[in-house]
């Protein structure tokens, strides 16, 4: 499924967060969304997932405007994984993963054998089969994150939109998750903080800064010293790994950062 956006603008209580973003994600492509805190990554993901109505511009799935699909229509095409919200619920892990079957069921109907088979497959995919019956409260942050990924897969989605899913994961699980996403043969847009991880596993990177899409292309083209200095305000060194993918190491923050845009203070990380 192809995900496109044309001239996407969105503002939160008068402050522009996204400004005329154009993007085109090809079917099966794994795209990393990178940018500093408050650059608009989360808002972009939410607009693409149909959770926010843009002030201007259109999001399309395979050419169909998202606003014509309805909440269920969107949910049957795209799964969205928000940053983990720690909370108090009595749900079990299998129940949480089973939520992914909601868009395919009548409102009052419970899960049937097919739903449970899909949940079993999703749990297996993220390696949580043994924890199916565990209460959510007893899970570690990493296990919760993987359960959310399983829930997204239980939606049998054509596209996956994920907001920093590698948070709370240890290195092994980060690598496993990224391999899972890259090998899933779905259209994937994943917001990431770890630039080297993004470069290793993504076909393409989108770099956002102050609500603008400032660079898009192969990891080696997007991760340049100039871009990292300008957008992330860091002094970075780039090397290539054995497969020619860029790896980022940092000398430190820039001593004399470029003057910040007046809008920055309004962009809080994780603004809902």
């Amino acid at each position: 499924m192809r995900i496109t956006a044309e001239g996407l603008s969105w503002s939160a209580s008068g402050t522009p967060v996204l400004r005329r973003v154009d993007l085109d994600i090809a079917p099966g492509e794994t795209v990393g969304l990178i940018g500093p805190n408050g650059s608009g990554k989360s808002s972009l993901l939410r607009c693409l997932a149909g959770l926010r109505v843009p002030d201007a511009g259109t999001v399309r799935y395979d050419g169909v405007p998202v606003r014509d699909l309805g909440a269920r229509g969107i949910a049957r095409r795209v799964a969205f994984v928000a940053q983990d919200s720690a909370l108090d619920t009595d749900l079990r892990v299998a129940d949480v993963v089973g939520l992914g079957r909601t868009p395919f069921r009548d409102r009052w109907r419970g899960p049937d054998a097919y739903d449970r088979a899909v949940v079993a497959a999703a749990l297996d995919r993220v390696g949580l089969t043994g924890l199916a019956g565990r209460p959510w409260k007893g899970l570690s942050g990493g296990e919760r994150q993987r359960a959310h990924i399983a829930r997204a897969f239980a939606q049998q989605p054509y596209g996956l939109l994920l907001d920093e899913p590698t948070n709370h994961l240890d290195v092994k699980h980060q690598l496993q998750l990224m391999e899972l996403l890259a090998g899933a043969e779905r259209t994937v847009l994943v917001a990431l903080h770890d630039l080297t991880l993004a470069a290793r596993h993504c076909d393409r990177l989108l770099l956002v800064h102050d609500g603008l899409l400032v660079a898009s292309g192969a990891p080696a083209d997007v991760l340049t010293c100039e871009n990292l200095a300008r957008v992330f305000e860091v002094d970075a060194e780039l090397s290539a790994d054995a497969l020619g993918r860029p790896a980022v190491s940092y000398r430190g923050p820039l001593r004399d950062p470029a003057p910040r845009s007046a809008h920055r203070s309004a962009h809080r990380q994780g603004t809902p």
Binding site: G70, A71, A75, S85, L91, V96, T102
Partner: peptide, 16 residues
């Protein structure tokens, strides 16, 4: 059930 993880997650599951 879907509301357990907040409005955004619920909406992404097709819940009005």
């Amino acid at each position: 059930d879907g509301l357990a993880f907040g409005a955004d997650t619920a909406a992404s599951l097709g819940i009005g």
